[in-house]
Simulated assay, not measured.
Amino acid sequence: MPDHEVAIVGAGPVGLLLACLLAQTGVDVGVYERRPDSDDRSRAIGIHPPGKGALDAAGLGTRVKEEALELEGGEVICGGRILAALSFARYQRVLVLPQRRTHALLIERLSHLPSATLFPDHEVRDVRNEGEQVRLALHTAGVSREVTAKFVVAADGVHSIIRKQLGIDWRPRPGSGSYAMVDAPHDQTGQRVQLHCEPAGLVEVFPLPEGQRRWVVADLQRTLGDRDAFVAAIRQRTGFRLELPLDRHPTMFRAQQHRASRLTAGRVVLLGDAAHETSPIGGQGMNLGWAAAHQLSAALEHAVRSGRAEFREYERHAERAAARAQQRSAFYMSMGRPAAGPTLAVRNAVIRLLGTAPLRARTANMITMKGT
């Protein structure tokens, strides 16, 4: 008999959510994570309607909503003028909660499900399909061992070892950019986002719980890792004088987009960032993974009961959803690039159009991933 009915490689928010969904139906799940401790970085913050639906299904919707800040809408600004303003309907609202808290709530939920076990500090070094089961080679505390499972889900991120071992191509998609980011205290309350699409490049300002703001600045030259340069760029582009505490330093990141050429190989399935890398600009990646996990959980539960690896519908749905999300992200990034002259005028006209009454509801649906 295999050691698990399902083994999940990767205890990020997507892998943990899938584990909760499976375990609450009684499926035996082992979650293997190479890190010994939790990842305390803030990282993803936005929980869109598809993500909220998946969290509700996992029994976490109420807990998350109690801690999260609810976004009511936002404005797109250029040169001090509002180009477009949107207010979200109740069904479009986005929750804001730092990923470290979402992660902690998922682990807490998993700990109360008796058919699930989390194995931190377990690095998966090899995976082999063996007909009726999959064999995983693990390394932990200097010791190598093997476990088996009826099915394996690779939720091990953009640099997925399992995807590489299975020989699945990792194909680039349009849309890339460099950015600098920092979370800092802010003395004004609010539940609206400000997007400054300025001639010199994007500045995003997101409200966070507990009196914080996240600042994201487009950084094509990758020079804004220095806190003084970061503050100066915000002032130069928006006129706002950010008071950044001495212990806060910007984090630089490169946004890129890729998709795996296929999502299944025998009894192994790719999920989340292992299946598709979607730019964090627009906040879609984690929610895309959660929505896919929600669908995959039903397919896996059926596969465990029937013994058949049938994931074609999951693969089709996940690939279509990723393609739509990446198209949106590429568009968002194009709107935030430096622009001047006719290019700036055309870009601002497009933004104004999207904020007009006939298109406002559709634009809000696009931003909040309704229909994903």
Rank of each mutant, 00 (worst) to 15 (best):
A232G: 10
Q188V: 07
A291D: 07
I162R: 07
A321G: 13
A233S: 12
L271W: 01
A345N: 11
A57M: 08
G336P: 04
Y314C: 01
A339R: 04
A325F: 01
K52T: 14
A154E: 02
V127F: 10
H4E: 11
L195M: 05
L106A: 04
V350G: 15
L195V: 14
D187M: 10
L296Y: 02
P185T: 03
V64W: 06
P98S: 03
R43F: 12
G272Y: 06
R320Q: 14
S111F: 08
T25H: 08
Y314V: 00
G285L: 03
S38M: 14
H112T: 14
M181K: 10
Q284V: 09
R213N: 12
G167K: 10
V217P: 02
A155S: 15
E66W: 08
A325V: 13
L270R: 06
G74F: 12
D156L: 03
A184W: 01
M286C: 11
I367P: 08
G157V: 01
R337T: 12
R192L: 12
D247R: 08
Q295I: 08
E75A: 12
V182P: 12
E313G: 03
I8S: 00
A349T: 15
V64N: 04
H249M: 06
R100Y: 04
A361K: 14
V268Q: 02
C20Y: 02
V182H: 11
D3M: 02
G26M: 00
P172E: 11
T251W: 13
A229S: 11
L220S: 06
T264V: 02
H294D: 05
M366L: 13
E210T: 03
G10R: 00
P172I: 07
R337W: 07
V304E: 00
T62Y: 15
I8A: 01
